[in-house]
Computed example of a mutant assay.
Amino acid sequence: MSKLGYLGTALRSNFSAKASHGIPASWLLRESPRRFSTEAEQPPQNSPIDPFLQNATDTGPVYGKIFGITKHTLKTDIINMLKGCNLTMDDVKVNYNWSFMPIGVMVQFPFRNAYDQAFRMIGRKGRLYKLERGDRSQWDLLMPYNGKTVLLQGLPRNALPEDVERFLTGCVYEASSIEMFMRGAFPDAIRMATVNFPSKNEAMNAFIKKNRGFCLNNQISVRVLQ
């Protein structure tokens, strides 16, 4: 055997002897710890973050839905309840169902802090109201009646637009805006109509003068839509 062969055999024998006497293999194989260290240094997967919390510093508008209102709730009631949230009449829309009963209110808060403040204020009022997060698409779908549209309920089935005009005699309204329709109810369907007025004052005057008045032989309920 050559000298190089004897040298290789001696080195392998020396390595085996040291490993058998408890000397850590990592002292002899310096590359192994580096491989394990590389795997341990991989960054952990990021946990999902609620987009609402992620955008907590956004300065754009934030939308909320308030539940617990009645058909007598006005926009001014919402604004007064959330005093300090910098709301205007244009920041509030009432959400009506198919029979024009209010099921909630959409509110456009100018910034996130205003929404948080409203959440705390409503939370202190117990179970009367509830505030949930909304979005821009829900806001855009709602019709802004703005207190200028009047709903007439209980019209006779044979009533014509001319009958509605006679009912509204003495009021200032837009005759071309009269829309008549039926809504299912128990025990019988109800004939309704909506009429637009040039201002909130004119719509309120129609409510004061005509509510519980008669169209043909039916007593009519008049309500201003918010």
Rank of each mutant, 00 (worst) to 15 (best):
R120M: 09
G64L: 01
D91P: 04
I103F: 06
V107Y: 02
P33E: 13
N113L: 12
V107F: 05
S99A: 13
G84Y: 06
Q45N: 10
D91M: 05
N86Q: 14
G84R: 09
T38S: 15
C85P: 00
E39H: 14
K71D: 13
V94I: 15
P33W: 07
Y115R: 04
Y63F: 12
S26E: 14
G68Q: 00
I49V: 13
M121P: 02
I79T: 10
T57Q: 10
G64Q: 01
D58Y: 04
N46W: 06
S99T: 12
R30T: 12
R124W: 02
S32W: 10
G84P: 07
P110S: 13
D77H: 09
G64T: 00
S32Y: 15
N95W: 08
M89G: 07
S99C: 08
A25S: 09
V62P: 00
S37D: 15
E41N: 12
D58N: 06
H72K: 14
Y115S: 02
G68R: 02
K75N: 13
M106V: 03
G68A: 05
W98N: 11
P110C: 08
L28G: 15
E31W: 08
W27I: 06
N55G: 07
T59I: 09
A114M: 08
P24E: 11
T88F: 05
V92M: 01
T88Y: 06
S26N: 10
T88R: 11
R34N: 15
P24M: 09
S26F: 13
E31H: 09
F67V: 00
F67N: 03
L82P: 03
N86V: 08
S32V: 13
F119C: 07
T38A: 15
Q117A: 09
V62L: 01
M121L: 14
G64V: 01
K125T: 05
A118Q: 05
Y96L: 09
F119K: 12
G104Y: 06
Q108H: 10
D116W: 05
C85R: 03
V107Q: 01
Q117L: 12
A25L: 14
N97W: 10
V92D: 03
L28E: 10
K93A: 06
I69G: 00
W27P: 02
P44D: 12
C85L: 03
N80M: 07
G60D: 02
H72E: 13
Y96P: 04
P43K: 14
V94W: 04
D116F: 11
R124C: 05
Q108R: 15
L28K: 05
C85D: 02
V62S: 07
V94H: 08
K125V: 08
W98V: 11
C85Q: 05
A118F: 07
P43D: 13
F119H: 12
A114Y: 01
F109Y: 11
F52C: 06
N80S: 14
I79H: 01
R112T: 11
F67H: 02
I122Q: 07
N46H: 09
T59D: 08
